[in-house]
Each structure stands twice: as structure tokens, then as C-alpha cells.
Simulated scan of single mutants.
Amino acid sequence: MSHLKHKLGTATVLGGTALVAMLMSSAAWAHEDAERNPGGGPSCPVSHGQLKAAVTQAAAADSTGLNNDFWAVAVTRSGQVCAVAYSGGNIYAQWLLSRQIAAAKAYTANGLSLDAPKGPLSTAQLYGFVQPSPSGGNPLFGLEGGNVLDARAAYDGNVAEFGTPRDPMIGRRVGGTITFGGGLALYDGKRAIGGVGVSGDTACADHSVAWRIRSILKLVPPSPTDTITLTAGATPATGGHPRCPNDTGTQGQTATN
């Protein structure tokens, strides 16, 4: 009998140890979830299905650039990645490098845009203001160094889940600052609600497809002044963006020269 009691006591201790281990594991998972979704945050301006349909439709309609496929990433107003999709037939149908570039474009455009009437700022509009200048006159030179991409958040996880509703970037602030075309803010009326970034082709084609996506989603600002101005030489004086191969049909552009 005493032997049985000893075994039962041991089992109780072991059971308690297992319970503690399980609780500690649950706490660790809860902590990780909190890191991935700090404070819950604002809701995503677009579902995965909506973004997937929009980037697929926009890529098919756009014939600028190299006629590549694209990655599209949406972020919430707080900058968390909340939807990732691609237009091609599989993960490798578009440049894999472009997935995290698209995320950084979305983060940049969202982070530098305000509610109307001050309104949106696109990544394309930053180009001329960040280039090195012999006179040292560019006001935003070095901008990209102040908000670097979180490589761990961008590259972590199972590649098979990239571009799906379970993409490992979901819920994370990947950050990054991109200063060429492809990033636009998203609006619900006058209110900025997030951003979309597109990458996979020339910078002009990325902007063109992002412009189409925003229109398809009906998340356009009241005054869409965040156009790309294609110029032969981009400087702070022009506020322009360099020309790209096959850029004649670029959507969301102002005058070109």
C-alpha cells in the first residue's frame, strides 16, 4: 500500500510538473502573440482575399515596365502587416525579394500620410528629395537610415505560407523606408486607414499597379495628390521620379518629360 501511495504521489508531482510546463509554454505563446499584435491595433483595411483579387486584376490590366507579376502588402494605420498576396501562379512567379520591399513601401506611405485635407504622400514622391547632391541641398538625404527594415520579421517563417492568410509577416511591424514608386496610403473618406505596397517590376510599374489596386479597393483619398511625376532628372526642385523602361501608360502620374 505504501508503495502504491508513493507511486501515486510521484505521479501527482509529475503531473504538476507537466501542468506547470504546459502553463509556461502557453504563457510564452501568449507573449509571442502579444509581440506580433501589440495592443491589438487598428483593423486591416483589406482582407487577404480582397488584396489577392485586386493585385491579380491590377497586374493583368497593367502593361508597363517588364510585364512581371507582383507582391502586394497591406498595413494597418499602426503599421502592422495585415495582408500579403501575389499576382502570379505561385510564390516564385514574382521576385521573392519584392515581398519585403512591398511591405516596407506600405509602411513608408502609411507612416508619412495624414488625414485629409493634408492628405497622402507616396513613396514615389520621396525620390527626388533623398538623392545625394554636390551642393548638399537635398532636405531628406539619409531618410532611409532612420527607419530600417526588421529583417527577422521580414524573413522569418515557412516560405510555403508566404502570400497566404498565414504569411509570417502578418501582425508584425516590418518597418523600412523605401523612396521610389510603389507605396500608397489607403483612405476611408478623409481618414487615412493604412497603406499598400507593391513590388515586382520597375518602380514606375509598381506605382502604376499600386494605383490600380487602390482604385479597385475603393480606398482612394479625396484628393489623390500622391502621383508620380516622371522626369528625366529627379531633384528637390522638380520633386520628380526617374523615368523607367516602358513607362508611357503609368497610372497615377502627372506630367512627364
Rank of each mutant, 00 (worst) to 15 (best):
M22Y: 13
V73Q: 05
D62G: 07
D62R: 09
V81L: 03
T64E: 03
M22C: 07
I91P: 00
L51N: 08
I91L: 15
C82D: 01
G89M: 12
H31D: 15
Y92P: 01
A59Y: 05
S87P: 11
G40A: 03
A74S: 11
E35V: 09
V73W: 00
I91S: 09
G39H: 10
V46D: 05
M22A: 11
A74T: 05
Q57V: 07
G41H: 02
S25I: 04
N90I: 05
L19R: 09
A21M: 14
A21W: 06
D62F: 08
V73S: 08
A34Q: 14
W95C: 01
Y92C: 02
S78G: 12
T76C: 01
A21Y: 08
A28V: 05
N90P: 07
M22R: 12
K52N: 10
Q50A: 15
R36C: 01
T56Y: 02
Q94M: 13
P42S: 12
T56C: 06
A60G: 06
W71S: 07
G88I: 09
Y92V: 15
R36S: 01
L96R: 08
A27I: 09
L66S: 12
R36K: 10
G39Q: 11
L66V: 00
A21T: 10
T56P: 08
A27H: 13
A85D: 13
M24L: 15
T56L: 10
G89R: 15
Q57G: 10
A34C: 01
T76E: 08
A61N: 13
C44D: 00
P42W: 00
W29H: 12
G89T: 15
G79N: 03
A59C: 12
S43I: 00
G39D: 04
G40I: 04
Q57F: 09
V81W: 02
A21E: 07
A53L: 04
P38W: 04
Q94E: 13
G65P: 05
G65Q: 03
V46L: 02
A61F: 10
G65R: 02
P38D: 01
A21S: 14
L19D: 00
S47E: 01
Y86S: 11
G79I: 03
A60I: 08
A30C: 00
Q57M: 12
L23Y: 11
R36Q: 13
Q57E: 15
N68Q: 14
D62W: 07
W95N: 14
A72P: 02
A58N: 07
A74E: 05
W29F: 09
L97W: 07
A61M: 13
G40L: 01
A30Y: 05
L19G: 05
L66P: 01
G49W: 00
A85N: 08
A21P: 05
L23A: 13
T64R: 07
N37D: 00
S25T: 11
S63K: 14
L97T: 14
G41K: 03
A74G: 07
L97F: 10
V73E: 02
Q80V: 00
M22W: 13
A93Q: 11
V73F: 07
W71L: 06
A27V: 10
L23D: 01
A59G: 09
M22L: 14
V75K: 02
